[in-house]
């Protein structure tokens, strides 16, 4: 019994310590912003490897998710004779929920895990220590460009996901199932609100971008510098990101859409 409490206490303490480290770490990363603004090239290289290389994955996934939404939505809506609102349903699901959430999960699997592994390996091979000894701050030189590249890429990727998803829903709904084209777009246009839906969706994806990239770079930087340690850190990066994204999605949804 005592042992159980001991273990519980230890776990709580070490979790709190880690949270503390993560917070100090992100403050340190943010102080690297002025330097990045004077050396934009460092950021662009990372936007390419974190963002651009994720475009294909996000596009294909968006297309399929949109097509599935078109099929499922049609099945339900046609029971009520409301097929014309298919466009609204597809767009609202994508822009409010699936765009930000699914993109964040894909982003963490494709880019977040790669960031964690890369930074962890740089630590394990003493590249980060080596930089410190060359009087270069690795948090500002290595971590900060990657962090800001991730934060910048996520909202763009989520928007892309939603746009392609709507196209997928359109192909299935209008192209295959014969929903009226004019109604599909007109209903979507009149019922999707710019502020309530689009802006809230963008805010969500921006928040998820910060969370996922933060977790990814911190797990890499905090990894035990061995092959095993890096492998564990990579797994943790993806798992924690998934929990954090789904948890925060609930909180944000409650705040944004909870009332009506």
């Amino acid at each position: 019994m005592l042992a159980l409490f001991q273990k519980l206490g230890y776990t709580t303490l070490s979790t709190l310590q880690k949270l503390g480290r993560a917070n100090l770490f992100i403050l340190h990363v943010v102080t690297g912003l002025p330097e990045i603004l004077t050396r934009v090239r460092l950021l662009l290289v990372q936007v390419y490897s974190v963002g651009v290389l994720t475009v294909l994955l996000v596009s294909i996934s968006g297309l399929f998710v949109g097509m599935v939404l078109g099929l499922q939505g049609y099945n339900v809506l046609s029971d009520f004779g409301a097929e014309q609102t298919l466009g609204v349903m597809v767009a609202a699901s994508l822009v409010r929920e699936l765009g930000p959430v699914v993109t964040a999960l894909l982003f963490s699997g494709r880019a977040g895990s790669a960031l964690t592994a890369e930074i962890g390996l740089m630590k394990a091979t003493e590249q980060l220590s080596g930089m410190e000894m060359m009087a270069v701050d690795p948090v500002k030189r290595i971590i900060a460009p990657r962090f800001f590249a991730g934060c910048l890429s996520m909202p763009l990727l989520a928007s892309l996901f939603s746009m392609i998803g709507v196209m997928g829903g359109y192909f299935v709904g209008v192209g295959l199932l014969g929903v009226d084209e004019g109604a599909f777009w007109a209903q979507m246009k009149s019922r999707i609100d710019f502020y309530d839906d689009v802006v809230n969706g963008l805010i969500k994806s921006a928040v998820f971008g910060v969370i996922v990239t933060w977790i990814a770079v911190f797990e890499g930087y905090d990894a035990v510098p061995t092959s095993e340690g890096v492998s564990r850190a990579t797994t943790r990066s993806v798992v924690y990101s998934a929990f954090a994204v789904l948890g925060w999605d609930f909180v944000l949804t409650a705040l944004m859409f909870g009332g009506d």
Binding site: E126, S129, G130, M133, A135
Partner: peptide, 29 residues
Amino acid sequence: RKKIGMLFQTGALLTDLNVFENVAFPLRE
């Protein structure tokens, strides 16, 4: 530290830069 060079056991070269850029790194920074 700018006045101290350290040679790490593993070399600790930056793996994404070639030899020239590795040696140029401290100068560029």
